[in-house]
């Protein structure tokens, strides 16, 4: 067990080193891809928290991203609110809306919840398209940037800190008793209630917390891109996040965010193939859903573990 812990620590350290020196290895184009990947990683992890851990099958995560981005963007643009304060406001608004969605959806599960959240996202998108005087509509809304200067470097490191912080917080959360209750509710609401879990409270919390991280990611990314369009909250964008998280592994925060980073980089690397790459990723998504429901990373990790286990079959190690 200590060996696997040490291995984990080594892996995390390695990932951190690579992440920190990454901007010095690549040109500006790939740096911007890196920032986008960090953004998607936070969103995918928040979706994994809500769907993989708490079992609330929502397609509304990108709507919260869009809500966070537009809230902060419009506050900064129209009222000169300092951007960090604007992002914080967006996060709070997402938490409140998340609670409301969680509350009205209390009696829904599975496919119905998915339907409701798709409808919610689309309604929000349509409002953003229609109220063009305020939101810029499909033409987009120019919003101030977070950092002065031309360099993307500060965004990259901020994104890295946000991803690290989000993963640490969410990781702590899922290991805490709240995480235990989330999983209990996912497995069996009736039994969780009988075991004394305040089901209503924790369903709302799951929605609110997941929405907060999505809103945070949205605020950050919005002020990086500098122009917001209602398409951030579209079904296609949500589909991309679902594909990322599912390919990585929807029941692990880390796997979901690695999935997001891999998919984003592959999408850019395959840019020459244009539409083909989206078809390809849809196919990979379907294959993953069909044959490896815990994600490709989990599948990969499993087979590695199996090789290891076979190698030291004499001393079978219990995995934690």
């Amino acid at each position: 067990m200590t060996r696997s812990l040490a291995g984990q620590a080594a892996l995390i350290a390695l990932a951190a080193v690579v992440a920190v020196i990454f901007p010095h290895l690549v040109n500006n184009y790939w740096l911007s891809v890196g920032i986008t990947a960090l953004f998607y990683a936070i969103v995918a992890a928040s979706w994994a928290l809500l769907v993989g851990y708490a079992g609330q099958f929502s397609f509304g995560q990108m709507a919260f991203v869009s809500m966070g981005a537009y809230t902060s963007g419009m506050l900064a643009k129209y009222y000169d609110v300092p951007i960090p304060l604007g992002i914080a406001t967006g996060v709070v608004l997402c938490a409140i809306t998340g609670c409301v969605i969680g509350y009205v959806c209390l009696r829904m599960r599975g496919p119905y919840l998915a339907l409701f959240t798709v409808a919610f996202s689309e309604v929000l998108r349509i409002i953003l398209v229609s109220e063009a005087e305020v939101t810029g509509g499909n033409g987009g809304l120019q919003i101030p940037s977070l950092f002065r200067g031309r360099s993307d470097l500060p965004y990259y490191y901020l994104g890295l800190v946000l991803l690290g912080g989000s993963l640490a917080l969410m990781g702590w959360l899922v290991r805490s008793r709240w995480g235990l209750f989330f999983r209990a509710i996912r497995e069996n609401e009736e039994a969780a209630a009988a075991a004394g879990v305040k089901v209503v409270r924790f369903r709302l919390l799951a929605f609110a917390i997941a929405a907060m991280f999505a809103g945070l990611a949205g605020g950050f990314f919005g002020h990086y891109v500098g122009i917001l369009t209602p398409d951030i909250g579209s079904v296609d964008q949500m589909g991309l996040v679902v594909a990322m998280a599912v390919i990585g592994g929807p029941e692990s925060l880390i796997a979901a965010s690695i999935g997001a980073i891999l998919v984003e980089f592959l999408l850019e690397a395959l840019r020459a193939y244009e539409q083909w790459r989206l078809v390809l990723f849809a196919l990979v998504l379907l294959l993953t859903v069909r044959f490896a429901r815990n994600g490709l990373l989990a599948l990969g990790a499993d087979s590695v573990m199996r090789v290891f286990r076979r190698r030291d079959a004499a001393t079978p190690a219990r995995t934690a």
Partner: peptide, 23 residues
Amino acid sequence: RKGDYGVLATFGVSILLRNLALL
């Protein structure tokens, strides 16, 4: 969790078909 499976599988098909059509 068949419900979740059905949602994911058909959602995946919808993404595939939409992008295939674009292509």
